[in-house]
């Protein structure tokens, strides 16, 4: 499976006393797209939010076990540093409403008080927007509010904002669930192109989407990792009966 970038060992996640992830053991390969799928409420999003330590900010959120980012123990790092190395895009596009498109892309630096020369900032913005195929669409309106864009464009702006920080891993939490089919196709296309330079972990509701974009797929059910493997193998020859039933639409 090549190099691993994110590994979990006996990972448990809780909301107060309620256990939502049970004994998750998985190794996410570098420069690949990994999909996490499963029915609603199975813990997909929680797992994703463990990776960038957002889970512990939820009321009662608690993690037990180990997560490794390369060879360092992610849970012993400063969450702020973790979040700068692992970017995240959310279900609904959430550009900063007070900022222009340009400021949104560079927000990771500006909000953190990282000083950049004007040239360097321009370069980062241009590259991030080019990576998300947004540059040609917005290069003349960089100083307009990000919220003027269409939903699909806003989501690509959010991806650009995360990419501008040069993260090692990009987490996508159902990034197309609020978008129309055309914008969805556009984002999926983008994900396939992006994995050359950044490892992608995508939570998705849609089996089809996992099939289209992911090299590896994990199937979660009721907080347990049922199966994890190359997407093709998992889709054509699932080892677990529950995976097969989910894929054939028996539940979900």
């Amino acid at each position: 499976m090549g190099d691993k970038i994110l590994t979990t060992e006996h990972l448990y996640a809780y909301y107060d006393q309620h256990c939502v992830l049970k004994d998750i053991n998985m190794a996410i390969p570098k420069f690949k797209a990994t999909a996490i799928m499963g029915p609603s409420g199975c813990g997909k999003t929680t797992l994703l939010r463990c990776f960038n330590r957002l889970h512990e900010l939820s009321p009662g959120g608690r993690i037990e076990g180990k997560i490794r980012l390369r060879n360092t123990d992610l849970l012993s790092l400063n969450p702020i540093q973790v979040r700068r190395r692992i970017g995240m895009v959310f279900q609904r596009p959430n550009p900063f409403p007070t900022m222009s498109i340009y400021e949104n892309v560079i927000a990771g630096y500006r909000l953190n008080g990282i000083k950049l020369s004007q040239n360097k900032a321009d370069e980062i913005v241009e590259q991030a927007l080019k990576k998300t195929a947004l540059w040609d669409e917005v290069k003349d309106v960089l100083y307009r509010r990000g919220t003027f864009l269409s939903g699909g464009q806003q989501q690509r702006l959010c991806i650009a904002r995360a990419l501008a920080m040069n993260p090692e891993v990009l987490l996508l939490d159902e990034p197309t669930s609020a978008l129309d089919p055309k914008a969805t196709a556009h984002i999926e296309e983008l994900i396939v192109g992006l994995k050359k330079s950044v490892t992608i972990v995508i939570v998705t509701h849609s089996i089809g989407q996992a099939g289209r974009v992911a090299d590896y797929t994990a199937f979660l059910y009721l907080g347990e990792l049922i199966e994890f493997g190359p997407t093709e193998r998992l889709f054509t020859a699932p080892k677990d009966k529950r995976t097969e039933e989910y894929l054939s639409g028996k539940f979900g």
Partner: peptide, 16 residues
């Protein structure tokens, strides 16, 4: 979601 957007960029809470 706005607060999460900032936190996910590694922005400290007080700066958010």
């Amino acid at each position: 979601s706005l607060k999460e957007a900032a936190l996910a960029l590694g922005v400290p809470y007080y700066r958010t």
